[in-house]
Design a protein around this nucleic acid. Sequence first.
DNA 1: AATTTGCAATAAAACGTTTTATCGAGGAAT
DNA 2: ATTCCTCGATAAAACGTTTTATTGCAAATT
Lengths: 351, 351
Amino acid sequence: MSRSHSPSIRMVASRAGVSVATVSNVLNGKASVSPDMVARVNKAVEELGYVVDIAASRLRSRKSLLAGVIVPDLTNPMFAAFVSTLEHLARVDGFDLVVVSARNDAAEEADRLANIRAWRPAGLIAIPCDGAFKSRLPAGFSIPTVLADRIPDHDEFDLVAVDNAAAAGAVARHLDEQGFRNCLVVGTRLSISNVRERWEGVQAAARQMTLELLEIGIDDPVGLDAFERRLRERSKPQAMFALDHGTALATYRIVAEMGLKVPGDIAFASFDDMEWMQLVGSGVTAVRQPVEAMAEKAWLLLSRRLAGEAGEPVTRRLRCAIEIRGSTARSAVSRGGETESLKREEKHGNQ
Amino acid sequence: MSRSHSPSIRMVASRAGVSVATVSNVLNGKASVSPDMVARVNKAVEELGYVVDIAASRLRSRKSLLAGVIVPDLTNPMFAAFVSTLEHLARVDGFDLVVVSARNDAAEEADRLANIRAWRPAGLIAIPCDGAFKSRLPAGFSIPTVLADRIPDHDEFDLVAVDNAAAAGAVARHLDEQGFRNCLVVGTRLSISNVRERWEGVQAAARQMTLELLEIGIDDPVGLDAFERRLRERSKPQAMFALDHGTALATYRIVAEMGLKVPGDIAFASFDDMEWMQLVGSGVTAVRQPVEAMAEKAWLLLSRRLAGEAGEPVTRRLRCAIEIRGSTARSAVSRGGETESLKREEKHGNQ
DNA sequence: AATTTGCAATAAAACGTTTTATCGAGGAAT
DNA sequence: ATTCCTCGATAAAACGTTTTATTGCAAATT
């Protein structure tokens, strides 16, 4: 049991010798309160360390300066950056955020959404687990909603995403032009829309290069075993392309453990540019997603809806940058050796 | 303006043909309500998609199943993992979390704390920006509080941290035993308690090895320049030890850019074991902090306080593991070359 | 048969706010 | 001097809950 409750507006009022209504008026900057009152109230507020009870405030005023945010996994650096940016923007607009993670689980996503609803947020920003997001919204939960990053099955929401197909296609073209004759493409699962779009982009862009797809689950040892077996086959692929951060990390680890040289033995490219990709070997070629921009756009879209803007759901596709690094340097013919020297020439485009 | 408000307990009551009190009783599993009523209420809840309004509930019941969490930076993977674990544990206990980031800024920390207070959480878990945390708590904000990771100036709160000195000392001893004669130790600033403790641990443990300290700010180009200049001097250190993740990443990047071989030209060790440290070169020797365990301990401590456990503030120090990798392999005498072979032998202690 | 007990259900109060309606006082207009 | 505004301040109602006190009714006790 807590000793003393935190001060209420009533205590402020009595200490200032005014009514609670006056205190409320002062705090909310309402019109026509005399300077004298303002001073008295502020003094009392200061002395008591009074802070408004947001919940009670929202309850009565029926206006909620709160937005819900749900992401598949907070430990994913991309999503963490997304949330962090969002939090900052929200605060600037006077909003609070209730952030939850679905931990890559659809059932948990549904549960957390119900939980978010219990907070009665004014709006929602979601990076869905998968395409069936809508079906997991609690019945009758209809607040302005912006989806981000992953593409849902039904387009009834505003959406911000990156142009997966184009970016993945550009990487594929790059590999193709470097002269790699075949490429092993890996991703968690095609059921994740991003992965699917990227795979389709690769297929559309590859010309000379033959393709091969391997789905590896999320933290799935079986899938990783399959991957490793594939690399041990005689007809090992000349290049590989990981379609998301998770598989990039997992597969790169295996490649390193097997003692394969990159790009000498196999070229390596990745969607999602993580910080370690600049450090490892001669650098890993990667697609850099504009996460911050995505968060900004998502918040902007939501703000507009909250301001009452009507109209059809809109979709915004953001362009990705591609960081060419040593891991895809031409060496299909001349194995090993001299790749070190052309190390990371565009290092500084990276700030 | 939203069209239809989400259903209230009153609507549930009228649809079920009972009183609101009965609905509340059913929802909260209160004693003695007939099975008939239970069924009717649940049916109505189902049909309307009713979800309780947490804020109103807390307001009246005066019991808050909400805990505040503040961290210096959400994009730091360590803190993200901390928060993620915490969120899961909280949920298991029926708690919600309001998570904010201070963005490495003391003023912002103070601001966010006031904001957290507006939510009237039952407890608080904080990773403070610096030692002066207490001074930034809003006046009269006294709820059960657990600090984590960083050590405050005054010990009036429960605290969970790692044994920085011992772990850093072990690394120093390792470097010493490997035969490195001098070591450049880098960290953001000694004013961060962790960094200070680690530095002290290093000093206490080093025997043959001479030490040298360099403070590099957080995202501070000046500090990094100083670091780079130091590495260009003729009497370049044989080994270096980065005392936190930020400096480890920044300095390793510079080392790589300068074309220095690790450990051939300089040995490298780090506090904070990040995933890329297994991948880069022959692996980076690092202290692995038990973040999840720290979150668990923090939550446990808070739960107890919330359950009413009284008593003096307690401090728990968790032990760190040390991952010896190639970056500190003995090569002070025999430069370059054969270090590849002893690559990452304890890879599997790492799961 | 009259009273008490026990129990299920509800009406009403309360939580900390904001909003709406009311009030009183001090000028300006009649 | 009376009436009419205006304006600053407040009392009271309301928000969606939970809790407390009250009700009504049937069963159990005299």
